[in-house]
């Protein structure tokens, strides 16, 4: 097991390398000249050349990449031009807010999706199955940014049950119940699509497994139907569902961009959208790099979990 994890970590090196190259290139190839942008009306050729030299922009791309990577590895993501504070500080603060939101949504989606999928498979063609199938269809077709607006209208504006937006109340907030009240709507909205996908996949994986030979063996042994379904079939079905939950984590992280905008959640998605609008290159770069790296590490976790469940996966 230890060697499996070590091997997986080593396999991540090229992926992380490629990822850093893409992040670097995207920002390096941005059209427009930063020096001219900084200098504005003072952009004489001499000034431009001096700025370019100061920023290291007159050197070759590989050299610039190596310098940049060196800084990144040392924990220096540069300074945000629009916020005038270190990118790392801003990203860390915003990303933790996103993790709260996305984590809650993923847990919610996994629980709901697995339960709905299992019920739907066990009661195939029954009423529960039909309801789940309909709910799944609506869920996976839902524009979440629209659903968020509708939920705000219903629960916050009309019913006044939950706060409209933000992460904490401005006055007297800050404790856990306050956070949960603010979290309820955005997390539920963000969970909708992922729950649909997980439910659908769990259902088909369960139905597939229930037709396999080893399930017939379990029945031939005289096991109770409960044990056949939950002991034998579910266990085999989970092996196909877990990687999908890993993939859904990426969709949830991405979807958080919309939800944070709709619910004014102070997360990294909203930060990125604002940074793009203000052309704050270093902030975008740092934000994308941190989120993508954490996603890669999360998938490593999903792989390890799958390996624990499935001894057939070669080390």
């Amino acid at each position: 097991m230890a060697s499996y994890i070590l091997g997986r970590i080593l396999a991540l090196v090229p992926v992380l390398f490629g990822l850093s190259v893409i992040v670097f290139l995207i920002m390096a190839l941005i059209p427009g000249d930063p020096a001219t942008a900084i200098l504005g009306p003072y952009a004489t050729p001499e000034n431009v050349a001096r700025i370019n030299h100061d920023l290291g922009l007159d050197r070759s791309l590989p050299v610039r990449y190596a310098t940049w990577l060196g800084h990144v590895l040392a924990g220096d993501l540069g300074r945000s031009s629009s916020l005038n504070r270190p990118v790392l500080d801003e990203v860390a603060e915003r990303f933790s807010a996103t993790l709260v939101l996305a984590g809650a949504a993923l847990v919610l989606a996994s629980i709901l999706g697995l339960l709905a999928g299992i019920v739907s498979a066990v009661r195939q063609f029954g009423l529960a199955d039909k309801l789940v199938t309909l709910a799944v269809l609506i869920g996976i077709s839902m524009p979440t940014f629209w659903l968020g607006l509708l939920l705000i209208l219903a629960f916050a504006v009309r019913l006044r049950l939950l706060p409209v937006s933000g992460m904490f109340s401005i006055y007297g907030g800050g404790d856990l119940p306050d956070l949960l009240r603010h979290l309820a709507l955005p997390a539920a909205t963000l969970a909708v699509v992922a729950a649909g996908v997980i439910a659908r996949l769990t259902r088909s994986a369960m139905l597939d497994v229930l037709r396999q030979d080893f399930v017939r063996t379990a029945r031939a042994k005289g096991l109770t139907e409960r044990r056949v379904v939950f002991g034998h079939a579910l266990r085999a079905a989970l092996v196909t569902v877990i990687p999908v939950i890993g993939i859904q984590a990426g969709f949830v992280l991405g979807g958080a961009v919309y939800i944070e905008t709709v619910f004014q959640w102070p997360g990294i998605g909203r930060m990125l959208v604002n940074a793009i609008a203000t052309r704050d290159v270093l902030l975008v770069q740092g934000g994308v790099l941190v989120v993508a790296t954490s996603y890669v590490l999360f998938n490593l976790l999903a792989d390890v979990l799958q390996r624990l469940l499935d001894p057939r996966i070669a080390p």
Binding site: V15, L16, G18, L19, I22, V23, I26, M27, L29, I30, A249, G250, F251, L253, G254, G255, V257, L272, V273, A275, I276, V281, V284, V288, V291, A292, Y295, V296, N299
Partner: peptide
């Protein structure tokens, strides 16, 4: 490497560029 980015984030980064 493309898959290593969360889906929408890659799109955001490209639009940013």
């Amino acid at each position: 490497v493309l898959m290593a980015f969360p889906y929408l984030l890659l799109a955001l980064a490209i639009v940013a560029a």
